[in-house]
Design a protein around this nucleic acid. Structure first.
Length: 262
DNA sequence: ATGGTGGGCGCCCCA
């Protein structure tokens, strides 16, 4: 059975309930993973999602910051969470679907402005978060799993608008890219988006601070869809719904899609 | 070198 999944950093699920509903109505993915919900779980507006058939929902939240959720039309038979790097943040939730696939949904710390853990605690927390992910995957190798989320790292030269100009900018520094690669290797994860779209510039985030985000097109690919190597061949049809960045009251991220024939 | 915008919360944090 083929199923389609999307991941979207929504930057407040309460403020942007209308565009979440629009995405679910227009595109109808079987599974939608959200990050930066910025809401306690009990204040997430679930009724509208349920009315569209997303009856299986797991979420983790806290007041004002972070927060992740998985909305699914496919029954979920198990759920879990991990507090990587012991930050006490709602940055991870996992759900096992009835079809045997496990979804890992992550919101990796952004890491602040200065790429030096000696002077910027947040950068150290970001690296530690990735190291903890790596160790977790090494200790318990994932199988038949899909990892999605805002990983806050654009690893490839063509994942950013200007590689040289961003080498010292948090999200594209070599040490972050190295940490991400170690995490990816530890879980035998395959980058499905780049398996499908191997060539060319590809972004999923554009800053709010640009006068005209589309004209400037100074984007970064921060949002990812990975799959374990045992199911990576089933992945296809990846795309970034760039249009959503131009919707009414948009998130600064666009949704990333992939389809799996399993 | 800097400031630009946006969300949540409440006199400032975070992205």
């Amino acid at each position: 059975m083929p199923f389609t999944l999307a991941t979207w950093n929504i930057n407040s699920v309460r403020l942007r309930e209308p565009i979440v509903l629009k995405l679910l109505e227009d595109e109808a993915p079987d599974v939608l993973c959200l990050q930066e919900c910025k809401s306690p779980v009990e204040k997430i507006p679930l009724d509208g999602f349920r009315a569209l058939g997303y009856n299986y929902i797991v979420a983790r939240g806290q007041k004002g910051y972070n927060g992740v959720a998985i909305l699914s039309k496919i029954p979920m038979v198990d759920a879990g969470e991990q507090d990587f790097a012991a930050l006490g943040h709602a940055r991870h939730v996992a759900g096992k679907l009835e079809n045997g696939v496990t979804i890992q949904n992550f919101y990796v710390p952004a890491g602040g402005d200065v790429p030096n853990r000696e002077v910027n605690e947040k950068f150290g927390q970001k690296l530690d978060y990735l190291t903890d992910m790596r160790d977790w995957f090494n200790a318990d190798k994932p199988e038949k799993s899909i990892l999605v989320g805002d990983l806050n790292i654009a690893p490839r030269e063509d994942d950013v608008w200007n590689h040289k100009q961003l080498l010292k900018i948090v999200s594209h520094t070599p040490i972050e890219v190295e940490h991400l690669a170690e995490t990816q290797d530890a879980g035998n994860w395959v980058d499905i988006t780049r398996q499908d779209i191997p060539e060319g510039q590809l972004y999923s985030w554009w800053s709010y601070r640009a006068k005209d985000w589309a004209a400037a097109d100074k984007g970064r690919r921060l949002d990812h869809v990975w799959a374990t190597s045992d199911i990576s061949n089933a992945g296809h049809g990846s795309r970034v719904l760039r249009d959503a960045r131009g919707w009414e009251k948009p998130s600064d991220h666009a949704p990333v899609f992939a389809t799996f024939d399993l």
